[in-house]
Each structure stands twice: as C-alpha cells, then as structure tokens.
Design a protein around this nucleic acid. Sequence first.
RNA 1: GGGCGCUUAGCUCAGCUGGCAAGAGCACCGCCCUUACAAGGCGGCGGUCGGGGGUUCGAGUCCCUCAGCGCCCACCA
Length: 847
Amino acid sequence: MSPTVPDKPSLDGLERKWIERWEADGTYRFDRTASRDRVYAIDTPPPTVSGSLHIGHIFSYTHTDTIARFQRMRGREVFYPMGWDDNGLPTERRVQNYYGVRCDASLPYDPDFTPPENLTSSDRPVPVSRPNFVELCHRLTATDEKTFEAVWRHLGLSVDWTMTYATIDERSQRASQRSFLRLLDKGIAYQSEAPTLWDVDFQTAVAQAELEDRDEAGAYHRLVFAGHDGAAVEIDTTRPELLAACVALVAHPEDDRYRPLFGGTVTTPLFGVEVPVVAHALADPDKGTGIAMVCTFGDLTDVIWWRELGLPVRAILERNGRVRQDASVRFGDGGQAVWDELRGKTVKQARARTVELLRDSGDLIGEPEAITHAVKFFEKGSRPLEIVTSRQWFFRTLDHTDALLARGAELSWHPPYMQARYESWVRGLNSDWLVSRQRFFGVPLPLWYPIRPDGAVDHAHPLRPDEGRLPVDPSTDVPDGYQPDQRDRPGGFAGDPDVMDTWATSSLTPQIAGAWVDDPDLFARVFPMDLRPQAHDIIRTWLFSTVVRSHFENDCLPWAHAAISGFVLDPDRKKMSKSKGNVVTPLPLLEEYGADAVRHWASSGRPGVDTAVDAGQLKVGRRLTIKVLNASKFVLSRLGDTQAPAQPTAVSAPLDRAMLSRLADVVDEATTAFEGYDYARALERTEAFFWAFCDDYLELVKSRAYGSRGDDEAASANRALALALSAIVRLFAPFLPYVTDEVWSWWNEGSVHRAPWPEPAPLRAAAGDGEPLVLDVAAAVLGEVRKAKTSAHTSMRAEVDRVVVRDTAARLDALAQAAADVGDAGRVSDVVTEEAEEFSVDVTLAG
RNA sequence: GGGCGCUUAGCUCAGCUGGCAAGAGCACCGCCCUUACAAGGCGGCGGUCGGGGGUUCGAGUCCCUCAGCGCCCACCA
C-alpha cells in the first residue's frame, strides 16, 4: 500500500474521527467464539455513577486499557466489559438531592408521581413511596451512565460497549440473589440478632469494611461509683451519657487494686443502680483508673465484655441516636427524675446534661480532661456510630480466614507489596461480613418469613423462592403457596424489608459480567478471569469480597492477576477531596491536552504509586503525539518517493543495522514489562527510544535517505525507517490510541489496535550483525558538532571544515562505519580520527 | 502498637537481577526560521543519590540502624 500522508498532519478532529471509526468497525468487539486459552478477561471496576468522574478514574482506567490493548495486539481476544455501580447509598443520596424527595416506605405507590420542579435549597423534601423512589433512582442513573460512557469513549477505552451491566439491573439482581440462596444452603449465610455498628443518620447497620476512624475531641470524665461500707470506686469514661446503660465495672483479674471488689457490686451515680464488679483480661490497668464502666453499648470492647461475661442488656438509645423514652431499667432513688431529664435528647445533648447533673451531685471528680481520640464512623457518615441490637444477615468469613489468606497468596499482585494490605485486613477481621442494610435502593434479600397465628414474624424459618423465579422483590412478590392478601397478616407472610449491601452484589462482578448460570458457554470462556484492576483503597472491600464469593461459589480465585493503581494527588501532592476544593475534573484536561496526552500522563504513573496531576507531564504528552505525527510523515514521505521494490530491500548500512538492533532490545523490554503489568516501564522505554530515534538517527540518516549516497544506500535507510516506524507506532498504540491509529492508517489496512504486537526477531534478522555502538558514537560526535555550532552562535546548517575525533580504537571503528552519515548530518567536509584514551572532538567551522 | 511504601538535580520522577565517569522531563539560561516538526529544534547550568554503620575489587542499587513523610491494619474505658 502506498502511503497517503496529509500535507499538514494535525491532531484536530482525530478523536471524533477514530471514536466513530472504532464504533463502526467494531474494533474492540469481543469474539465470544474464542476458546478460553485465547481469551483475556478483565473484571472492569464498575464506577459509581452517582457523581462525576474523577481524575483518579481516568488514571486507573487508562492503566487497565493499556494492558487490554497490549493483550489484544498479542493476539488475545479481550473480554473487556463495563459495569455501572448504581446500586446503593450514593445513588439514594444523589436522587434525594437531585429530585428533592425522601423515601418513606410506608407510603403507597403513586403511578402519576412527578418530582417537584424548580427546586430551591430551602424546599423540604417531598416524601415518596419506595417503588416511586426506586423509579427515580433508575431514571437518574440511566442518564448518569450516558454521561460516563461519553467520557470513557473520549478517553479512548477499548471497552466492548455492547457488554455493559449495572449492579442494579436484572441480571445482577438475579446473580446476587442466586448466590445468596446458595450460600444459605451451604450454611455460609446466616442471620443473627446481635449488637452491630449502626449509623443513626442513615439508620442502617454498617459493616466492618465500611468503618473509618476519625480523631475527635472528647474528654475523660472521672465518676464515682459507691461501693459498700462507704467505699468509692472511681472510673474514667468518655461517654458519661451512657451511665444509665452501665451493666458492670470491669478490671484486670491480676489488678490488686480491684481484686477485692470482684464478685461484689457498686452503685451507679445519679441512677442508683447496683452493678457487679467483674474481671476480664482485656481491661487495661494502665488506662484511666484501671477499672472501666461497661455499657450496652459504648464501643466494641463493651460488646466483648458483655458477651464473654454474660452481662444483661440495658439499651438506652433509639435507632435515631436519641435517648429512649422508656428505660428498661429499674432505677434507685432519684434515678427516674434524672432519666426524665435525658430522654429524647441526642447523645450530645444528653452528655452535656449528664455532666451538669454529675457535677451538681458531686459525683464528678474535678473537671473533664480534654483528649483527642479515634472514634468509629461510617465512612460516608457524619456522626459517630452507635451500637444497637438488630436482626441482620451475615456471610461467614471468620471461619475461613486461612483459606482466604491462601487465596490471597495464590493471586499475582502488581505491585507485589499490595498483598500485605489484603493480609492485614483478613488477619484483622473481627466479625463476619454483614450484608443486610436497612435501605431502599439495592438488591432485596430474596426472602419472606411466615407470620404465626399470634402475629409474630417467624424469622427462624425463612421462605425462599426457587432460583427460576429470580430476581424477586419480597415487598411486592409473594412466596410460593401464599396469596397476596396474606401479606403482613397473622398466618400469612412478611417480606424481608432489607436490601443487600452494595458489596454483596459488586463482589460478583466476574460472575455478573460472565453471565454465570445464565450463559454457561460464555461463562466457561471468561471465568476465572485474567485481571482485576482497581485502586488500593478498596482492597479490603471490593477485592476481598470478590475473592470471598468466588471461593465459596466457584472454589477458585476469580482472577489470576490483580493490578493495583495508586491515587491521583493534586499538583501539590495533596490528597484530593471535595472539602478541600482541590479536585481536578478530567474533561477540561481532555479538551486542553487531548486524550492521548492525558493517557500518556496516566501511563507514566507506575503501578500502585500515587501520582500528582502535572501540567508539565501533560504538555510532554501533547508534544509526543505531535512528534509521532511529524516523524511518521517524514518517514512515510521517504517511502512514497522510493519505488517500492518487489522484494524488501536488505538493510545494509551499519548505522541502520545499529538502530534496528537497539530497537529489537526495546521491543523485548517493552514486552517483558507489559507481561509483568508494568505499562509505565514499557512506555518509558519506548519513549526514550523514540526521542533518540528522532533526534539522532533521523538526523543522521536524513541526507542518505534522500539519496545523497545513491539508491542502494537510500534503500537501506528507507527499509530501516519503515521497519522502525511500524514497530514504534505499534509500541505506542496502547498508550496513544488516537495518533497511532491515524498514522497507521496512512500506510496500512485495518486498525493498529488489531495489528500484531511487534516481535524482536524480524528486527534482529534485519539488523543482522548490527552493532549499537555505531549509533552511539555517531550520535555523540554529532552532538559535539551541534555543541560547537551552538556556542559559535551559528545555525545548524553552518558548514564545518574539519572535525577531529579522538577515541579508542573500537569506538573509532564504529564511527568509521557511519562517518559519511555523520559528515552529512553535521555538514562536515572532513572527518579525521585519532586514537586516544578519552573521547574528545575538535570542530573547525568554515569561514 | 503492628505492617507496607517512599526519601536521587528547584519541581515531578526513571535508575529492574550491584559496574554510573549519576539520568529524563519540567523550570531556568543561551543559541537556531534546519525542506518531518517554531504549540518546534539544538545546547548549557544544576545532585557528596535522607543520616550513620556494614558486605564487596566496586553500592543510588544488597544488609543493619536511625530520622522524616505517606498509607494500611489494630479490642483507642
């Protein structure tokens, strides 16, 4: 094919052109007839669509895309779907704000409902039924997904856009519910009425994986408990408002100060309740006064003491975080009056009032001592978590930590040290995986419960659907053997009101994308997958939970490799956050620098390494893409001028052979790097070669390629240029998909992204005995000539009378093989050599 | 408290299994309209590779130790 090169190559319009072409040609379409060994399957992270795309998304998805493109060029059929994580709390919050509504599950469905218009921030949210609310969630996520897809296409992700899924769609719900029921059969899923961490604003239970410690201002309050015979016991507490929930005092069994009290009782201040003094090894003699107040429940240590010491429950907080109206406690003298003061108050208010009362009664010793301490929060929450007792569903993980650690060791981690995070998480697990949530927009737990004749719900005997009925919504669907009018009636049934945690569904992305059970043929071709790409912050959630599900469901790892990306930091290397206002949005960058340049920046961030947004680096990428365009134009213009020989010309000139030999090494290095998931190294090697190729080789060979040394010499140069350009464009293709496909199209049929990845062997064959030293010495001498011209303030076109090169015999031999090219490139009339120990050059300019 | 990572030119970072007379880009300074490229090219300035020990013919590269920064984990009255 004779090259067709534009006169003035430009980046303008390239992105639109190639986005359309790739779509029309189905360039990235997955061929599902490919056998498993030819398939490379990627478990793409489904981005949360309830928000805007973040530069961090651009960063890590680009990493994945370079690997996808490399594998495709290596001949693998790449299974590269895209999911949308639209299920869960973030969507609920966005829908509430966007439409100005609030879900009220007690309302009936209103088929004519339309959301309020012309919202102002002062409008109170409109209550809507759960089905109406879910409709709005679907409506908004559908438009959000379109926006996201447009950005991904702009970035040039080689996703197969015919294969998308959403974590709330029917297929995901079916997979999620099916897996839940199977885990129920295996005894992995179980329900339990137990104290769990609870967010009082979102009014839902929260799992260990969603916790976040935050440093909060607090205070130690020293309180006096009355012992027998007028003795007093002092304790320190940060939560005096829980005094009414106190069920015991606890100290270390070896603590001589308190040993005499064990087995006896003391009386709480204010409330006058008698509580036991008990011993437990977890009590730390060095903390506070060495003896602690156990409340139901102030923190997770309280839960342990309560459980292991068989203490009673005195719960005083409602699920909304306020003190209950009725205490389940019999108080001593005056206790009821104190309670009356506190009930209905928030934790904060109750704390303040309690302290006042304690001070008045003389039970507070000294003043509270201000401290800063870590407090557990729901990662999306704004108030500290409380602990309340509720019925929840769990998946057993604690019994399986050894197996899960073994799975972690089986997985190939890139970079390897990320495995340590997984291990420390698994080793630190302290509860089973809590999967039920008291929310609305999620996959429902596929269960109902019989209602006994006395009206009590019989949670111990859940009613389950056959798998063929899935997905089901127990709030509208009816269990087999029941009629709709038996819902919530004695002798009838009740639907489980809860939904599953978002991770309970997104942990099945390999099964969902691979159409587990629904399409066994596809599933067998793509599962277990090859790659899970993701950022390091969700190792404990998404990565861990996916390993758990695959372990139980398929008895294998879900993928062979995990490629962990770092974070994107702002230009000052600070973590980005909305509150700091330093979040960089990707679209302006894509528009200013172009997708290839943005991808170039992203690809320069090495696996797992946090990387700063860097305008300089983006400019470099922009410059590189323009350089690729221009260098290609030059090379192809040479090919166009030369009569294409029937047989490819041999590469005869030593300089050409040297360049090809060096290039073959680069191909080797880039290939090895990519195989090890180090896309950044592959890029760095390619780029370094390319700039040297342009600055040195092209300049050295230009004159000869134009025919200054005759046709045979020109043919060698042009053959080498053609081989090099073809390889270079393909090496860059995973990083710079737009400019490479543009350039490739100038002299090739078909997309470069379906072209074979370059092989070193043909380059080595063409290079023959090529000695890279020839290129090195020639470039070094040319550099000295340029330096001389620069310091003489003359043009690079200035003629040079004479150049004397002193160097070792070996290097002078190498130079001799390229002396004519050096002379032409430097416009040197006479190149003279003298053997010497050290390299040096004398340049005598003409005139 | 345990663990992981980082510390190389003013800035952002490469330097993989030890051989480097220490690299790139940006920034800075200077030169050049050179027929692929002036939204460019060429050249220059700039570092005792965080500190201290050790192994070695040889250490930015391996070992020990200390310090600073960042992150992960932890039952944090």
